[in-house]
């Protein structure tokens, strides 16, 4: 019960942070809000027993993502133009989509239900066989690197490709300064 209470408080804080990020127009503040959001998400992951994921989220979401977004804001400017008209159509689209998704959750298994279908299929096999087949106590590592090695190879290829893409778009060498700056309209 305690875990559920902590969980509910953390999720409420997440919702507040996300709403604050929507309302702010200074991109620096939005980025810091996103950093806080990631840190709260990492705490939620610890509460939900996903320590490996929490570790990654704390390092990536709070550290690397924030630094990257700040670097981008340094290059493109920190102030967002305020929208000229009230965003009624986006609100309507979001409300309809959200209502449809809430309707979809009514058929979902309850939170933390041990009988949920997701826990029945391959996972008991991994949990039961991992010690004798791989000799590794951390099941997340044994699934990541051994049982689902193909997946991880594919993910690594995606990261590699994204890195190559950034290199192709921005490059590592220093640019020669163009003779005149682009005019800002």
């Amino acid at each position: 019960m305690l875990i559920e209470a902590i969980n509910i408080v953390l999720l409420g804080m997440l919702a507040l942070t996300a709403l604050a990020a929507v309302r702010l127009h200074d991109l620096f503040a939005v980025t810091i809000m996103f950093g806080i959001y990631s840190l709260l998400a990492a705490v939620v992951f610890v509460v939900l027993d996903a320590v490996d994921v929490a570790f990654t989220e704390a390092a990536v979401g709070v550290g690397i993502s924030t630094v990257l977004m700040l670097a981008t804001i340094g290059l493109v400017g920190r102030h967002e133009q305020r929208p000229a008209h009230r965003p009624l159509l986006p609100l309507l689209v979001v409300a309809v989509t959200g209502a449809a998704l809430v309707y979809g959750t009514l058929d979902m298994p309850f939170f933390a239900d041990p009988a949920a279908p997701v826990h029945q299929h391959v996972v008991p096999y991994y949990l039961g066989k991992s010690p004798e087949q791989t000799g590794i106590p951390n099941v997340v590592t044994s699934i990541l690197a051994s049982y689902r090695g193909y997946d991880t190879l594919g993910e690594l290829a995606v990261i590699f490709t994204a890195g190559v893409g950034v290199l192709a778009l921005l490059g590592l060498r220093r640019r020669k300064r163009p003779a005149k700056e682009h005019p800002t309209p």
């Binding site: 990654t56 990536v60 690397i64 997340v140 699934i143 990541l144 995606v158």
Partner: peptide, 16 residues
Amino acid sequence: PLPHVLILTAIVVGVA
């Protein structure tokens, strides 16, 4: 542990 594995890699792919 299976969703943990999926999301662990998705986070790093997401930042890339």
